[in-house]
């Protein structure tokens, strides 16, 4: 492999998109409002498109003749590098919007910085994905504000979702030792910078939404190292079903 650090970095981004896109796809046909069913499917489509680009690039770096499908469908659970946040179940509409908002608020500044990457391919993927992600963040921010500052019930649901998901947020900024070499080379930004921007966004939106950031700061991590929650196995069982049951066929 040419550059293992770069491979892992692109792979973890691809896995974040893949797993979150898969989760959102579960809503299709069951959305709480027809208009939002369409909106969530759109975000899912964007994420799956991003996963395809990122995993194709990872496969290219890996140089083993794989493509995005080989990476998406044919790894074991502990080889997926997505953060725990994105594999959490959909729950209700507040849980899904909160998960998406916390992620979008991280992805947007990350893509912004990556458009200036010294790696041309990463910069190109970031350029396209940034446009999509800006819209996702706008949409989810609008909803977090409405749920938080809507009715008592919606406020409680949104606060509960925040309380549940907050402990997965620190992992978004997990930086491996090898990733530091990519920072040095100007390929990726330091996560400390992204975290500052993320914090500004979430604090502003939560203030407007009258939601309170939990004071319990115990944080989970593990996804980036391949150590996942129980939820990922079921998600992969569905995702991989056809490829595992009918190996080596074209679809």
């Amino acid at each position: 492999m040419k550059n293992e650090a770069l491979y892992n970095y692109v792979l973890h981004m691809g896995d974040d998109s893949l797993v979150l896109g898969q989760r959102l796809g579960e809503w299709c046909g069951h959305g709480p409002i027809l208009e939002e069913d369409i909106a969530m499917t759109n975000i899912s489509l964007d994420l799956i498109g991003q996963a395809m680009s990122l995993l194709d690039y990872a496969a290219e770096i890996e140089r083993q003749g794989k493509d995005h499908d080989a990476l998406a469908y044919l790894r074991f659970e502990n080889q997926y590098r997505n953060v725990l946040l994105v594999e959490q179940p959909n729950g209700d509409f507040a849980d899904t919007m909160m998960r998406q908002f916390l992620f979008d608020a991280f992805r947007k500044p990350l893509y912004e910085k990556l458009t200036a990457s010294s790696d041309a391919q990463i910069a190109a993927i970031a350029e396209k994905s940034l446009k999509e992600t800006r819209y996702h963040l706008k949409h989810t921010s609008e909803w977090i504000i409405r749920l938080g500052d809507g009715t008592d019930e919606s406020h409680d649901r949104a606060q509960k979702a925040l309380d549940n998901l907050w402990r997965y947020t620190n992992e978004l900024f997990y930086e491996t030792e090898e990733a530091k070499s990519l920072v040095m080379a100007g390929i990726v930004p330091p996560m400390s910078e992204i975290k500052i921007l993320w914090k500004q966004t979430v604090e502003a939106v939560f203030t407007e939404a009258t939601l309170v950031i939990p004071t319990n700061n115990w944080q989970f991590e593990g996804g980036r190292r391949g150590v996942h929650s129980e939820h990922l196995g079921y998600l992969l069982a569905e995702l991989q079903y056809m490829q595992r049951a009918y190996p080596n066929m074209k679809w």
Partner: peptide, 13 residues
């Protein structure tokens, strides 16, 4: 000013 993130993502679909 939102035009590009509004409309461009569907170009590639």
């Amino acid at each position: 000013s939102d035009a590009d993130s509004f409309f461009e993502p569907s170009d590639t679909k």
